[in-house]
Design a binder for these strands. Structure first.
Lengths: 133, 133
DNA sequence: CGGCATCCGCCTCGATACTG
DNA sequence: CAGTATCGAGGCGGATGCCG
């Protein structure tokens, strides 16, 4: 097992090159993913919508995640009222491109992790109705 | 010891468990993913192979991740020598089913995260040769 | 209510030493 | 080389309070 010079790009995995670790550094933690999931599949938009999720994200975490996602071009915000200014958050094209990614992940989990079960389409639809106009 | 994992609080929507968060609770952290990536795309099998990764996983972390993956049916181990017993680790069908998942994630990262670049096919092939017989 | 800042406990990881 | 044990440091996240 020649342990001498390996391939120069063996650095896949450090933060700058490997697409896998890069992606998961960005969206791979629990809270970020919940936010994106709720935007993508349920249609949530406002700060309070995310806070209301049964998982109970706290405000500072939510704030920080929204900022990170915005900074990385996954979401954008747009004011929907002034005085005081309030923002709606929505996915950019980049963010929407995550849909097949999430579905692939969820699909694997549904099949291979026991006890895992997403909401039915009917439940999804009902949830979505609460947030989309 | 067996200090339980944080798999506890991932409730999705209703009381049913969310396949997204479940999956990422299992494989979503940095080190677990690197192990799976190396098995899946490079063909690494042995403890030392993973240790040699340029990211520098430490032995206790590696041990813990391998155990968790085995416990969850993603990998299995098989002794390849006795006295002392040494194990090879390999993906189960469940584990192999992660391939499209990882590729989807990596695909998104390649396109949407700047500066992200995986190894070329040629480099991948070269890496693989070191570990597969 | 929407959003931010601070404090602090706990968990995770990394380093290291040790066994077979 | 394969794997275990221990311990300290740092970061994440929960609680809370403040401000517009």
């Amino acid at each position: 097992m020649s342990k001498d010079k390996k391939i120069s790009t063996s650095e896949c995995g450090n933060r700058s090159t490997c697409p896998l670790t890069n992606t998961l550094d960005l969206i791979g933690d629990k809270w970020t993913l919940l936010v994106i999931r709720d935007m993508l599949f349920i249609g949530k938009k406002q700060f309070g919508d995310f806070l209301d999720s049964p998982e109970g994200i706290s405000t500072n975490i939510l704030t920080e995640r929204l900022k990170r996602l915005e900074k990385n071009g996954v979401i954008e915000k747009r004011p929907y009222q002034k005085n005081p200014v309030r923002y709606e958050y929505f996915l950019t094209n980049t963010g929407n491109a995550l849909k097949p990614v999430l579905m692939e992940i969820a699909g694997w989990g549904s099949v291979h992790i026991e006890g895992t079960k997403g909401p039915t389409k009917k439940e999804l639809e009902a949830m979505r109705k609460q947030y989309t106009q």
